[in-house]
Nucleic acid binder design. Sequence first.
DNA 1: ATGAAAGCGCTAACAC
DNA 2: GTGTTAGCGCTTTCAT
Lengths: 346, 346
Amino acid sequence: MASVDNITIYDIAHEAGVSPATVSRVLTKKARVSDRKRIAVEALIQKYKFQPNVQARSLSDMHTRALGLMVADICNPYYATLVVECEKAANKRGYTILLCNILNNKELENANLEKLYAQRVDAIIQMGCRTDDLVSDPDYVTRVGRISQKIPFITTGKLDGINCYCLNINQAEAMRLAFEYLVAYGHREIALIGGEKRDRSSYQRWQQYLYLMDINHLPFREEYVQEGGFSVDDGYDCLQRLLHSSRLLPTAVIARNDYCAVGALRAAHEHGISIPGDLSLISFDNTFLSEIVTPRLTSIDYNYAAFGSALVDRAISLAETGNAPKNSLIPPLLIVRDSCAPAIRA
Amino acid sequence: MASVDNITIYDIAHEAGVSPATVSRVLTKKARVSDRKRIAVEALIQKYKFQPNVQARSLSDMHTRALGLMVADICNPYYATLVVECEKAANKRGYTILLCNILNNKELENANLEKLYAQRVDAIIQMGCRTDDLVSDPDYVTRVGRISQKIPFITTGKLDGINCYCLNINQAEAMRLAFEYLVAYGHREIALIGGEKRDRSSYQRWQQYLYLMDINHLPFREEYVQEGGFSVDDGYDCLQRLLHSSRLLPTAVIARNDYCAVGALRAAHEHGISIPGDLSLISFDNTFLSEIVTPRLTSIDYNYAAFGSALVDRAISLAETGNAPKNSLIPPLLIVRDSCAPAIRA
DNA sequence: ATGAAAGCGCTAACAC
DNA sequence: GTGTTAGCGCTTTCAT
């Protein structure tokens, strides 16, 4: 019952009447062992609930079976959800997660990178911060470049000119889903709020927005694009500016993320604008926020479980076999709730 | 510039003309080394940006400088905030965090416990799940009991009858802050929604609620206490039941947490009840949710930074020196926002 | 103060 | 198939 500790493969080997190497072989399953010995050893492993010392194993075979996760901020439900899915996927394959929050601090980002490297993780996965930049910070590229020669580096963003693996959300498709949904509802005055063009995904969505406006023959209006960050307050400010700056109000708004949408909700509320009655609102990320506000938000989802396990699977197969597809795209998904309605034609 | 890898203390020792033991001594600072040699070694460490192999070090000195964090669900902002603070505190002391989500799954909870033990973390900190039970699950007590004989176990809850360290929020004081704030506003009909009595902190708050009702000479009404979980939907359901079951509506509601309060907000909205105009609402945890809903929620905060670093400091001093205070209480704090108003006396 | 040497517990050649 | 042995890179007695 009580797992005796400080037991080693030598103890097991001794009691089973075999050599330590044989015990190691049944542990790693990397070589064939006769049934008789294997069964004897397995029985003792059971009996003592023996768990091989991971540090010793790592020291010997140069693999830690640990994955470093660098994440912008786990307090953001988007990252939290993704991290949980990564953890599940890693568990399933016997890997451990080392979590580091970057907290929007470049010093910390550098330090975390070095730390994970010093911990000899088998691969590093980064989501957010400097991997989200439209044009990569050369200093960070250098740092990651050096490390990625030693261990695989996977990101949900990208880093120009180095050997890293990118698993991106298909932002153009995400925007298309949102946009066409609104168009199908008859909207023609469609605004875009939040985000920054120096952020790659914001930029890509903005490009796609321009393109879609164009092919749908909708008139582009400068003031319909309100840049401004990623927070609730940013969303609020953006909608405020939009409402004050335009004579022809939009009938629909595409928010950068659920945070921004929540801020927009508040601004609309203060202006006595009903959503979706007077204004349709759609957002990205489909975090739990979109479920809990009133009205519930129609939002773009990414299938977090598939996203997380794709990241981890890639990291692990890179660590173990050295190859994996260099880049690929996660397909987004439209989740319809209550924040959009048909446009009211004047 | 480029950190050469696979460099060991032997390389440093060789180049510095000293023995590996001396290099180890300057690394650990656990023994005196002559200034001359120390400086020479430090220079080489700088030069090569040498980082000692953590696995080798752990194997040798039996310390991993890693802390295992078991958390109910990182997607919950309460836990996310706490985890980030733990991480900061751990970083500051050179420790690494191994994160495990329990996800309300006893199998997973058991597995995570074993996993962290197998990883030889120097201490385990658990927040949530079975450490939150009013009466501890004997099976889990046994499991943790076995492990806590080997490594320190710290929790934000408790576990009956075993050698573990508890750092709890002062729930009675938290409830008192909320309650007296409402009383000072003239409220006499005060309801309590969400939570479950099998949850220890819910139970403690409920006890305190009864006590405070009593000493304030407020009449207790059965239907003013609506138990019902911890989610947004639970909060919604609780307020619904309350509104339907009582002829004399309360003028104030104390919600189990921000989630429940958000649900209550929705229920109130649907009933055309204005908050705080018709009904005051106060909640616990002071997560970012209380900032982003309308109206902003008055909520009880716990000083997460102090909470997180207290947990980690305790874990580390337990791991390093073997002693720390067995139990202590985190003082709560009232954060006033817009969801409460003076009672309207009929 | 410092060096030599013996582990820490495992894996991976290498022989047989 | 299986055992022997040499590391993996560090810390820590134990001498000196």
